[in-house]
Amino acid sequence: MSLALPAHRTWKKPPAIKRAWLRWTLIVGAAIYLSLALGTTHVNWSRVWEGLPRGMQFVTAFLPPDFTSRWTEIVEGIAETLWMTVAATVVGIALSVPVGIGAARNIAPLPVYYFCRSVLAVSRSFQEIILAIFFVKLFGFGPFAGFVTLSFATIGFYGKLLAEDIEDMDPSQAEAVRATGAGWLQWLNYGVQPQVMPRMIGLGLYRLDINFRESAVVGIVGGGGIGATLDTAFNRYEFDSAAAIILIIIAIVMAVEYSSGYLRRWVQ
């Protein structure tokens, strides 16, 4: 067929970024950044080389891991971690309910709103570990510091999601309850709570899961729990005990994740 078209129309895939200058700026910028980043990253290759046998030792320590020689410490560490997780999740959620309600624009007065929002912002911008360092300074070594850390971190996570959930709720349902002449607390209980409850229970279980993972590390900076045991094992180069601890952590994380998924389905 001879349509009145040029005999050979070439075709090239049009570039993803249409503006040529932007495309080239991005490409050149990325290249410069990468070469600078790689160029300024000092790797002590001889040290890495030296460490490789130790790395192999560590890998072989997994077969078989040594559960027995540090068993009592491990059990104690795990138990401490679990108490910390449970207590911190409960307290954190309990505290985040008023904060979350206060941070919901549609039901809180403005000063309360700003105050609660800033509490949430502070709690969310610091890593758990940084918080843990300070709480360890304040409360001394041990699980209490870890417990406070995780509770505080939970407030940031849970309070923010609760506030967003309340802001997204259906106002007509809440109004219907208010129209019955309910008081403020009654109104919260009947008009707001039923709407946000199912999702919040699910998120609470999810946070339990996160808190367990995090509690395994607050121990490294002195917050008690299995992290402390693990840190000791590494410092003594007891790789087979460390391997055992890591396997236990993986197993518990999987169990918690699985059972919280199951519980979430059961609750909803």
Partner: peptide, 26 residues
């Protein structure tokens, strides 16, 4: 690399023109 032979590209344009869509190739 999207480097098809020119004959394929010609054929593609011919077909698209045949169904009235060659201006929408991209």
């Amino acid at each position: 690399m999207r480097k098809f032979p020119q004959s394929d590209i010609d054929e593609a344009f011919r077909l698209l023109a045949r169904v009235g869509l060659d201006h929408m190739a991209d």
